[in-house]
Design a binder for these strands. Structure first.
Lengths: 291, 291
DNA sequence: CTGTTAGCGCATTCAT
DNA sequence: ATGAATGCGCTAACAG
């Protein structure tokens, strides 16, 4: 009979079943390549399970997030995938608790331990990366960039601290304060010259690279460089940049599947899943990677 | 009374009103910075008008697009914003016509002239950019990269052709065929050396830059460079890259507002809107831009 | 101007 | 097995 062009009405169906076949996705910025790839995978997995994805961006502002949560509440999403902003407002947590649908936090945990989360090993991966710089004989390692109020930046910074502490090296940390170009320039030309830089995310990594090259210093000979987080151009640069590569697609698929499982009652209890990031060896650390 | 925590049920409301307060957004790839910024603005404008955005990615495959359209149909989106894939399948056009909601095409037009669209002046902006290279005294200008089956690439290529034709210069076009690195290398070192490159989108522009720098040629002295489409790193590179800057945010806001107007019946007839891209002068073309 | 009611289209129950 | 009836929660029409 469907040949007569019968189309079930989703509204009526939802009214009855109380399910919208929709999941909500809240990320800080869709223009950040990390979150863009995340969103892309979420959408792909969700659609295969016949769920539509409603997108919202929080700009890392808890108030925005709260607004979006109420929108999702109105639209009756069946599940929620979100990257929590830096601080969890009471408002937000309250909405999350009243929201009667499964929630999975991505990239950053949610305060309460009763929420599921899918994270990567920021701390140990950062430690390994910095350890690698030390193995290359580096002793003055600058830890560069990042908003220290973000969970991931905090964790990576801790990893850096552990690595240098183990080697008896004094930590040297410059988070996002003022102009990174100037900061980098000061540290690679001053009397207390730095011989390696660990970029806490893609932006400072690239700045470190460009400033160094611009001052006619060699990478990795004069300054060795590793960044946290891969980015499209890292491999294309003349001295290709060694990075900690986060398995974004796998993280995203895991998070989405976990959410779908929770929604279908397959999994009941909340889960904290951690997936390891790996170092992607290229030239900037001092290794000659296999081609 | 709402203090007792009354929440209207969107399903029931939609069942009655026949409107979902939802718009559908189909883009080729959310991981493409151009479309990511587009999506970001769409979401922002839509939310201010109290509409939720359902995201779908077509991967530039008409079949994917058709699938997504049927999903949107089921979810009863009130309007549709899409970047049409290269060729319009009959299937797709048929669905679009049966879909009884307003449709706005973005970045690329839809075959039928009865669809609204918001585009930029790919052709004339490209022509101006190439003309600018010619004004810098360049005569051997390589037009590089891009899928020639895409509308935007075709238009930009036409702009290039017009500019060189006016100057009596032989066109030299290499679309995406094989390894761009090799192609660039051959063209800047061969006997028929190229003295300028026009990148048709960000990727080939950056490849042109890196290959040139890697071969120790100077930009802009040896090779002058302009790219179509700005990208985050273009301004950060040592020889900052002059680009045709598309007003993405404005394009996106215009498209979304047009869609909202169509949905609310404010605007009835379909509109073709074109917004001009501007050249963003930096160093790679040979200009010394004001700082 | 406030209060009651019918019906949106589906899914589920109950009767046949 | 197939078929008729009820209600999901809201909105709009209508009655008091």
């Amino acid at each position: 009979m469907a040949e007569l062009g019968y189309k079930p009405n989703q509204f009526a169906r939802s009214l009855k079943s109380r399910r919208s076949k929709t999941i909500g996705l809240i990320i800080p910025f869709i223009t950040d390549p990390f979150f863009a790839e995340f969103a892309s995978e979420v959408e792909s997995v969700a659609r295969r399970a016949d769920y539509a994805v409603i997108l919202a961006t929080s700009r890392d502002m808890p108030q925005f997030e709260a607004d979006e949560l109420t929108i999702f509440e109105r639209h009756q999403v069946d599940g929620l995938l979100l990257v929590p902003p830096r601080s969890e407002l009471k408002v937000v947590m309250k909405i999350l608790r009243t929201l009667s649908v499964p929630v999975v936090a991505f990239d950053r945990p949610l305060a309460g331990r009763d929420f599921s989360s899918v994270l990567t090993n920021n701390r140990s991966a950062a430690q390994l990366a910095v350890q690698h710089l030390i193995d290359h004989g580096r002793r003055r390692i600058l830890c560069l960039g990042g908003d220290p109020s973000l969970f991931t930046i905090q964790e990576r910074t801790e990893g850096y601290k552990s690595a240098v502490a183990l080697a008896g090296i004094e930590p040297l940390i410059q988070h996002d304060v003022g102009d990174l170009n100037t900061i980098v320039e000061r540290h690679i030309t001053g009397k207390q010259k730095v011989d390696a830089i660990f970029g806490l995310y893609d932006q400072p990594t690239l700045i470190a690279y460009e400033v160094t090259k611009g001052l006619r210093l060699r990478i990795p000979e004069d300054v060795s460089l590793i960044g946290f987080g891969d980015f499209a151009f890292a491999a294309m640069l003349e001295s290709s940049i060694t990075v900690v590569e986060q398995p974004i697609a796998e993280l995203a698929r895991t998070a989405t599947r976990l959410l779908l499982d929770l929604m279908q009652g397959v999994t009941r209890s909340s889960q904290q899943i951690q997936i390891a990031s790996q170092i992607k060896f290229r030239r900037s650390c001092g290794c000659e990677p296999p081609t």
